[in-house]
């Protein structure tokens, strides 16, 4: 797999490639977030977490150019993402949306090759480079043996790997994933997240994912963004920012935090609250152990 392109080196070194600056986001008249500023550190695996309806998917949609902010700008390589042509953005920033549908009968190889669209033209429909990149993307995601199977016949985990392969074929240094593990069982969740981690570690891509599971977020993220009510409550290395206070503030959940014996990352254990006792939460450990 070829790595990210070289545009990053042209930027000022201290400005990340993808930044949301003072964003006001919403749908129609309903405002979801106001004055939201988020920077995605280059080369990070950034994970956005927060309770339902906190605006995390909305933020991802804005960063992906799917939603135009009411105020503020999303800057990709220093330029307003909405003023750049869609196809040009799609060569820098890939997306795995929640709502992807594979048309009936479309095979895995055909779906993955659709990722080449931003690199193709009317008279340049299938170059050798396209072929090589698609083969590599299928190899990287372990779907080569599925190549001729229709996508609609695959299991949920396989299907998600195929969609990730399509996004990889796009060859973008930045990749956004909206709840990539939703509807998957635990083994497939881990499989997808391991794949993401590999793309980050081995290929140097910058990943941004919205996840629901706080434990998985803390385990896989190099940069965690915790949101509540349209605000960023905390952002940074999960080992540093995941505390009982933060979990209480973001999710309203009393908890204990221990060290994940596998990875050393914070592991959040919800406190026991049995009905019938006088409602006092179980003792909590202040701060990270």
């Amino acid at each position: 797999m070829t790595g990210p392109d070289e545009k990053g080196t042209l930027m000022r070194p201290d400005t990340p490639r993808l930044v949301g600056d003072a964003l006001t986001l919403g749908y129609d008249r309903r405002t979801v977030a106001e004055d939201l500023t988020v920077a995605v550190p280059d080369g990070s695996f950034t994970v956005i977490i927060g309770p339902n309806a906190c605006g995390k998917s909305t933020l991802l949609r804005a960063l992906a150019r799917l939603l135009r902010p009411a105020r503020g700008t999303v800057l990709l390589d220093g330029a307003d993402i909405h003023r750049r042509p869609a196809r040009q953005v799609a060569r820098t920033l890939g997306l795995l949306p929640q709502s992807a549908v594979a048309p009936d009968g479309l095979t895995v190889a055909e779906l993955v090759s659709r990722g080449r669209y931003p690199h193709q033209g009317l008279l340049r429909q299938w170059s050798r480079e396209d072929e090589r990149v698609v083969d590599q993307a299928m190899a990287d995601t372990g779907v080569v043996e599925l190549a001729d199977r229709p996508v609609d016949e695959l299991s949920g985990g396989q299907r998600q790997r195929v969609w990730i392969a399509m996004a990889l074929a796009q060859q973008t240094p930045l990749l956004l994933l909206d709840e990539p593990t939703t509807y998957l069982d635990i083994a497939h969740q881990v499989e997808v997240l391991d794949l993401c981690a590999r793309l980050h570690d081995e290929q140097g891509r910058t990943l941004v994912a919205v996840l629901h599971d706080l434990h998985q977020a803390a385990r896989y993220a190099t940069h965690l963004v915790a949101m509540r009510g349209g605000r960023v409550v905390a952002a940074g290395d999960p080992r540093r920012i995941v505390t009982t206070d933060l979990v209480e503030e973001v999710f309203g959940l009393p908890c204990r935090i221990i060290e994940d014996p596998e990875t050393g990352t914070p592991l959040v254990l919800p406190a026991v609250r049995r009905s019938g006792t006088d409602g006092e939460p179980a003792p909590t450990v202040a701060g990270r152990c």
Binding site: A86, V89, A90, L95, P97, S99, A100, R114, Q170
Partner: peptide, 23 residues
């Protein structure tokens, strides 16, 4: 001229937009 973009639109607006289709 738009046939490839129409094909991508069948995968949903978000997927098509992510691939660079001016939906």
């Amino acid at each position: 001229a738009r046939a490839p973009a129409l094909r991508l639109l069948e995968m949903g607006d978000d997927s098509a937009a992510g691939l660079g289709v001016p939906v």
